[in-house]
Design a binder for these strands. Sequence first.
DNA 1: AAGATAAACAACAAAATGTTGGATATTTAT
DNA 2: ATAAATATCCAACATTTTGTTGTTTATCTT
Lengths: 178, 178
Amino acid sequence: MKTDLRIIKTNNTLYDALINLLKEKTFEEIKVSDICQKALVNRSTFYAHFNDKYELFMSLINSLKESLQTELKSIEETNLKDYYLKMIEVFLNHIEGKEQIYKSILINNRSSIIMDMIYDTITEDINQKVTKNDKDVPNEIFTAYYLGAIVNTGIEWFKNDKKYSKDQMIEYLDRLMV
Amino acid sequence: MKTDLRIIKTNNTLYDALINLLKEKTFEEIKVSDICQKALVNRSTFYAHFNDKYELFMSLINSLKESLQTELKSIEETNLKDYYLKMIEVFLNHIEGKEQIYKSILINNRSSIIMDMIYDTITEDINQKVTKNDKDVPNEIFTAYYLGAIVNTGIEWFKNDKKYSKDQMIEYLDRLMV
DNA sequence: AAGATAAACAACAAAATGTTGGATATTTAT
DNA sequence: ATAAATATCCAACATTTTGTTGTTTATCTT
């Protein structure tokens, strides 16, 4: 049994409304009524779908997470170094592909949830595929270090209007990772 | 003209109340009335000091920022590598010193604002002191990379109940930075 | 085309936010 | 130690935002 078109439709317009509002104000400043007004959806309908704005937001974040997860699946390398190099590419492609959404969230809001989401998602993927590192350091530390470096660099690149090309960035990150 | 003791007093109890509430719930879930109730401060008094709970929160974050700034001043190294090694120490000491506050914020809440604050503060300090890096990569990229790595590793260490000693962590980070 | 159901609408209750004026308590400065 | 200054308390109120509900209308599914 497939989902009613009307449901998909209102969900999407609610997502869109939220994304656009995020360009104007902080998430905290956005009221449920703002979202509904922009989405041309009745407030009672909103509550039929989500308990509050956080649920809507998390649902949005979750759809991003699912995309990222799928994209990470393409990485087959289990060797640490190779995995990271591939991952950098997948990651930069990912945020570039969802540019509008990421931009709207990163403009007025602190990188927060998004970074956590990305970080967690990649960590899970790494833990499944890569088992040990060559340096003499515990795995969690190792992962925290390199993921922190790569994700943060990617986000900064993105926030600064992608001053360098994606290929250039991959090049830079490769060089730094040596 | 020094500040009225009463003001300092209520401000402090409001901070304390917020910090303790953060151990129990998300910042979003905390209401102004909750804070006042816990602080034994009248709600109208709260509004005499802060426009909303965000202002209180940001004021708290800001006091953390000021400490960190002061502590970073002790670093005199302008050579990049040396700066980072010193900075790691200052940084880990900083979060360990304010353990209770950082813990309360990091338990139920996403690392977000805190990480941004730390990241921004150290970046400013770096930009004042260190001018160029040896690798063939733009400065912002370089900084984003290493700071992302170090700060993230530090936060993860802290969130996981400091499984390793601080000296051990400094050792690990030194090794990874080579 | 008929039945099912989502969305709109309107009305309401409750929670939380802000604001205000006057009484009370504490602090500062003399 | 006391007077003047002012921060806090208190209580009441207006406003905003959140949630909920029952009915009608529109849209989708089969």
